[in-house]
């Protein structure tokens, strides 16, 4: 119980979110502007830009960890049926 929690805490401390973010950026296809440049200054993430589909890339892979139910979407039946206004146009 307590021992497990302590150990978990110790290992949890070892997990570094900054490194995690770096790994994620690479996975998401970060284009680093200048290679060899000091990647981390004052704890800020490296420069560079993420491609348009960066978050889609991550989502597609992350979905395998989720067993989300698909949801049902429809249009008919979401509003009261009302006849259209009298026709104004002439043919």
């Amino acid at each position: 119980g307590k021992e497990k929690a302590t150990q978990m805490f110790a290992e949890g401390n070892a997990f570094n979110p900054t490194i995690f973010a770096e790994r994620l950026l690479s996975f998401m296809g970060l284009n680093r502007l200048e290679d060899g440049e000091d990647e981390q200054q004052n704890g800020h993430a490296a420069d560079g830009y993420l491609p348009q589909d960066a978050w889609h890339r991550l989502a597609r892979r992350a979905e395998s960890c989720f067993s989300t139910a698909p949801s049902f979407h429809y249009m008919i039946g979401s509003f009261h049926a009302e006849p259209p206004p009298p026709k104004q146009r002439t043919e």
């Binding site: 929690a5 997990f15 991550l58």
Partner: peptide, 24 residues
């Protein structure tokens, strides 16, 4: 594909991942 991938899942993965790895 099962669904047009939802980017929120990526965001959730990041947050849940950090919580899990840091012990809960």
């Amino acid at each position: 594909s099962r669904s047009p991938s939802n980017t929120k899942t990526g965001l959730l993965f990041v947050i849940l991942g950090v919580i899990f790895m840091k012990g809960g």
